[in-house]
Amino acid sequence: MLAIEDLHVWYGSSHVIQGLSLTVPAGGAVALLGRNGAGKTTTLRAIMGLVARRGGRVRLDGRGLESLPPHRIARAGIAYVPESRGIFPSLSVLENLTVAARGTGWSLERVFETFPSLTERRDHGGGALSGGEQQMLAIARALMTNARLLILDEPTEGLAPLVVGEIETLLAGLKETGLGILLVEQNLAFATALADTVHVLGKGRIRWRGDGTELAGVPEITRDWLGV
């Protein structure tokens, strides 16, 4: 579904992503792990066209996205949930859900069925939600774009274990429906539970790839590149 080949990103003169390649198969879940500053967020931002200078190829179902502006990349079928959640504070919960809604599949009814806590808060301002609710809203808002691939930047960051569990169940359910997922995480247990393939990113390059069980068998990789 998503194929990244030889991705490079520069911030000024520093070469932060140095030839990264990865694929997310249709309906598959892929996690990108790494320390702070490894380039995880930068990789996601580069996919969405949000970095100034990049090289390499990014394709979604064979269609090249490199030369498109961010809104066209999103419209090609990718929904992005940023690290900060990016909830629009001056929009109500309902407006947050509908402002970028398009396509069919995920409707307001289905979203409110899946996220009952948002139903009660539909007329609240986006800024009035708790961290967990904001994360749910950010995911629900992304689903309303009816994308084929969901990109999430540290969805569990700063959330209580109970909420992390809820998000895990939710994303596992979404994966079952055939939605592709690309996820950046620091939470190893969460990432390995959800993802079919795990990529370990360090200093702008993929240092290791495999599944969760294999990762448990290579302590030197976790020690050198994840610091756990």
Binding site: M48, L50, P69, P70, H71, I73, A74, R75, A79, Y80, P82, G86, F88, P89, S90, L91, V99, A100, R102, R141, A142, T145
Partner: peptide
Amino acid sequence: VDDRETAAALGI
């Protein structure tokens, strides 16, 4: 106005 990048990344 709230968040230009996120709005763009949602297809706006």
